[in-house]
């Protein structure tokens, strides 16, 4: 690869997973209770995509990473204070509700417009990354629709690994049923990869990287334009949080094996 890849990562933000997420009706439709006030994080699925993108860019000279985010920009700015310290990227932001109650088609259209407006976008070498699912509401459709809108027909979902072969082809590991993986190979970019968890740990914060990223992050946030996410065609008949039971017990002296045995016993009832 002489020019490297242009890796565009699509990522929204979601409330911090530790928060209680309670669906409520708002004047703008369905939303989460106190959503604007709750601390937010980058959607964990998309985060994996970003870390994989940065890793790939590091190993493919000439590559660069652009993060495209459709989110409330004031909240996105807070998220950037952490995220920008993780890996190098340039930010393209569109100001829109996060929620999880938006229409995947609308979001994909906003993303497509933002991506097409990226200066010097190299479609021939475009790797379009995103989350296979979302922590806000797992429709799992946005990346597929976005790929179609951009005319990218090579699409892989549930990706856990990507390898660039010596010939420049992409070898892709996708999750399939039964806890197994499917290995695919495609000729190369452009391609859509909807990431599962990948294999990389969350990078540690590095303020040097953060300060570097801030040179594009802050201007991008300042000029982020409101995106049209009308949601007029989308109605939810009913919304409820899945029933969950949380039972906390503190054990400090149990081995991992003992814990596993207890969980298995509990599952078997």
């Amino acid at each position: 690869m002489s020019n490297g890849y242009h890796i565009v990562v699509c990522a929204g933000i979601v409330p911090d997973p530790l928060q209680t997420l309670e669906p409520v009706q708002t004047p703008q439709g369905w939303g989460l209770k106190n959503e604007m006030m709750l601390p937010a994080v980058l959607d964990p699925w998309a985060s994996h995509a970003l870390y994989e993108a940065a890793n790939l860019a590091k190993n493919a000279p000439g590559s660069k990473v652009t993060l495209v985010s459709v989110a409330p920009k004031a909240k996105l700015q807070q998220v950037m204070m952490t995220l920008a310290q993780k890996v190098p990227f340039e930010l393209v932001a569109a100001d829109a509700p996060a929620g999880g109650f938006t229409d995947a088609n609308d979001v994909a259209a906003v993303l497509a417009e933002a991506i097409q407006a990226i200066p010097d976008l190299d479609m021939a070498n475009l790797l379009l990354f995103g989350g296979w699912e979302s922590a806000s509401r797992g429709a799992g459709a946005t990346m597929q629709i976005l790929g179609e809108m951009l005319g990218i027909t090579e699409q892989f979902q549930g990706v856990d690994e990507i390898t660039v072969t010596a010939e420049g082809k992409l070898q892709i590991l996708e999750r399939i049923e039964g806890g197994r993986h499917q290995v695919s190979e495609c000729a190369g970019a452009p391609v859509v990869l909807g990431w599962a968890t990948g294999n990389l740990p969350e990078p540690k914060n590095n303020p040097q990287v953060g300060m570097q990223n801030m040179r594009t992050v802050m201007p991008s946030l300042q000029k982020a334009r409101p995106a049209a996410l009308s949601g007029e065609d989308l109605n939810y008949a009913g919304i409820e949080v899945p029933k969950a039971t949380r039972e906390t017990r503190i054990e400090k002296n149990m081995s991992a094996d003992e814990i596993a045995q207890e969980i298995v016993a509990w599952i078997k009832g």
Binding site: Q78, M81, T82, A84, Q85, N205, N206, P207, G210, M211, M214, M218
Partner: peptide, 10 residues
């Protein structure tokens, strides 16, 4: 001061 906001997060 986003420099300070970042050191807070790290």
């Amino acid at each position: 001061r986003y420099d300070l906001q970042m050191i807070v997060q790290s």
